[in-house]
Every structure is written in C-alpha cells, then in structure tokens.
Write a protein that binds this DNA or RNA. Structure first.
Lengths: 209, 209
DNA sequence: TCTCCATCTCAACGGTGTTGAGATATTTGA
DNA sequence: TCAAATATCTCAACACCGTTGAGATGGAGA
C-alpha cells in the first residue's frame, strides 16, 4: 500500500517497482512475482515498467544486487561490533550470514539463483556486485589465520556457513534461535579449529589417496 | 524424442510426463518448465496431464522425491564402494553428495525448493520421501564418531557438504574436478577432525558466551 | 511559448496453468 | 457376448502472464 500515483508522471517509478517487487518477493518468493501485479499496486500501466527495466529478469538481478549489498553491510556491522578478538569476529561474520538468510529467506534464495545465471562461474563473480560478502569473510579469515591463510580455506568456511543457512531456510535443522546459535557456532568453530589443527599436524595425515 | 502416441489412450502418460518434465528441468531449470510444452512433445492435450497430477506443483514434488531417492542411491553405492574404513566412508558420502549436485544442478536446486514448501520444518521432513540422504549421512557419522556422536553434529557436517554443493553449482569456487575433490576433502576433514579435536579438548573452550 | 524528449497509456500478441463438459476407449460383470 | 461403468483423453474457454509498438501526455530547456 505504498505509492498512489496522482500525476501522469510517477516521479520515481523505478524505485517504486524495486520496492514493490522486493516486498512481494520477500512475502511469496521470486517465482510468484508478477510485474502486472506490481504495476496494479503502484497504479501504473504494466508497460510503464519497461521504461526503466529491460525485463523482469533485470529487476530480479537488481534486487539480488541490493540484497548482496545489504548482506555485506550486516556482516561488516556485526564484525565491527564483535570487538578485537579475531576468532570472535570470524564467528560473528558467520553468524551474521546465517542471520540474514533466516531473516530474508526468499531474498537469500534469489541471490544465488540469479547470480548463478549472471556470473561466468569464477569466484570473482560476486565482487562485481558492490561490496563483497566473500571478501569480508576472507578478510576476517586472514585476520584470524594469519600467514596460514591460503586460497582454498575461506571457501571451505564459506561452504559451512552457506550450507547452514540453506538448510535452515529449507526447513532442516533446528528452528529455535538458541539451538541455531549453538549450531552455527559449532559449525564455524569446527571449521576453524579443524583447519588449524590439521595444518598444525595434530591429526594424522590424510589416509585418502 | 520420446513418446509418439498412436492410440487414443497413451498407455503410460504419467511416466511420460515425469520423464519429459525431468528432462526439461535438467536442461533449463524448473522455472522454465512448461506443462503445455511437455504435452506438445508427448503429443497429448495439456488437459490430459490433469488426470494424473493435481497441479504443476505436484509434478515438481514428484520429481524432487525421485531425485532424493537417486541421491540416496548414489550415496549408498559410493559408501559401500569406499571399503571398511569409517573415515574414508564418511568422506565418500560427502563426495557423493557434492558429485550428485554437480551432475544434476537443476534437480538439486529443485529438491530443496519444493521440499522447503512441503515440509513443516522438522528434520524429519526428508524421511517422508523414501530413503533418506540425511539418514545415510548420519549413519556414516555414527560409524565414524562412535559414542561421541550426538544429535547436532551430523547437521553440522551436512551443512558443510551442502554448502559446498550449493556454492559450486552457483558458480563460486573451483570448476576443475581435481580442485573440487581437494576442497570437498578439506571441508569434510576439517569438519570431522575439528569436531573430534574440540570434543577431546585439545583446543581451548569457547570464548564466546 | 514552443519544441523536444522522457515517461506513461492503450491495445494487442503469444504464451501459461487450470477447469468443465463431452468424446472415446478399456475394463467390468451379468 | 454385449451393455454399462469407468478411466482416460480432447476441446474450448478462462484468467492470468511478460513483452512490444504506436500513440498520448506533460515537464524541461531554448
């Protein structure tokens, strides 16, 4: 129930479309989004939208970009709030990632659906969208691991955190916040310590060829 | 392409629809699936499909169920082939999970989209669909961890493996098989060893409240 | 004021999922 | 064996969708 248009020219239709579409996606998921429905709600002809976006897909991409930026914001904020200890900061980055996914599950799903279609497949795909959640996580990892940090480890941590997020929003795993917090901490801690411990040679070397 | 209908009655339209839809999903993704397109290809009126399925959604659910069963099959097969060592078996379960996701990315995405809509949110949601990938992973975990295995740890491992799968099919992370293999082994190993090491008290207790 | 141009409306095209009524074939059972 | 019952399919239609091209509208700069 937002923008009732009074004049012939809306004034900020582009933003109105993004806002309305984003709201509808968060409510019902990206597949259920209808541009005609948005136009109806904004009070504008469906065709007007095409003055501002090439296609429905383009709108989804823009919303995904914004969501990536929001996620990056949250991660940075939470990291900063976690204090000086690099391990606590690393944990808080992971927690923020999961928290965002749980707070905006439909947006989170969209992010990795359209980014998959948009990027060529390299890790760098993300960084083309403003500030980069992956970069933030990598930095936090470097702070923690120091000179032990190589290229592959941050992706491993990212996997653990991302998988936790996906499973939770798919309905698997606990629902209560306390249990979720415990779990995300366990996931991150296992990943972090397991990596470090293995690097230090505490555990036997790989028995897999 | 497949089933040219010669008689008025198709004979096995239900299976034909599932096969055709599954093929099209693997090619173009679930959103692009058109029932009319399937009907056209099979050589049948669109409305005929509704004798066998309540809705398009029901078809997607059936295909997701089948995919879950196929995944479970692969996991069991690979586990059995991994020999007697429980750690190697656990690693092979994870590797099979990721391999399935990479081989059938569109199906894999569908599985967790519709299962999310279908289940109430409990972990048990999966087990209502034939054999249960989560159960297989849990069993492999129990074999490895023995009496240390509690309720929460398998989910943590599942997160790591699932996240790896999702990131890879979203285009993040390495593309070459060798690198992927290394990565999945690192993820699993860190998860497994990290958990075990933490349980044994080698690493300092949590510094997070 | 008049022109230019971005913006919006209108009407239409081809596509979709889904439904109800009726045609057709297979199966049942007397 | 033949009719009735039932499962399966066709047909026509509905309401919706994304998208496009042509034309109306109104604000900005000369």
């Amino acid at each position: 129930m937002g923008d009732l248009k009074t004049s012939y020219h809306h004034g900020d239709l582009r933003r109105a479309v993004v806002d309305c579409a984003s709201r509808k996606i968060q409510a019902d998921g990206a597949d259920k989004l209808s541009l005609r429905g948005c136009a109806r709600e904004i009070g504008v002809d469906p065709a007007a939208i095409y003055q501002h976006f090439k296609s429905k897909e383009a709108i989804l991409e823009e919303i995904a970009r914004i969501a990536f930026a929001d996620l990056a914001n949250l991660m940075e904020t939470e990291t900063a709030a976690a204090g000086a200890d690099s391990r606590a900061r690393l944990l808080s980055v992971g927690a923020a990632y999961v928290a965002f996914a749980r707070a905006h599950p439909k947006l989170f799903a969209l992010m990795f659906k359209v980014s998959g279609a948009a990027t060529s497949g390299a890790t760098r795909g993300v960084s083309s969208m403003g500030r980069d959640p992956y970069r933030i996580l990598t930095d936090a990892w470097s702070d923690f691991a120091g000179d032990e940090a190589d290229e592959v480890s941050p992706i491993a941590l990212w996997s653990a955190v991302h998988g936790m997020a996906e499973l939770l929003i798919s309905g698997f795993g606990p629902e209560e916040d306390a249990e979720v917090t415990t779990l995300i901490e366990e996931v991150c801690a296992s990943m972090i310590d397991g990596r470090k411990v293995r690097a230090a040679g505490v555990v036997d070397a790989d028995e897999t060829p």
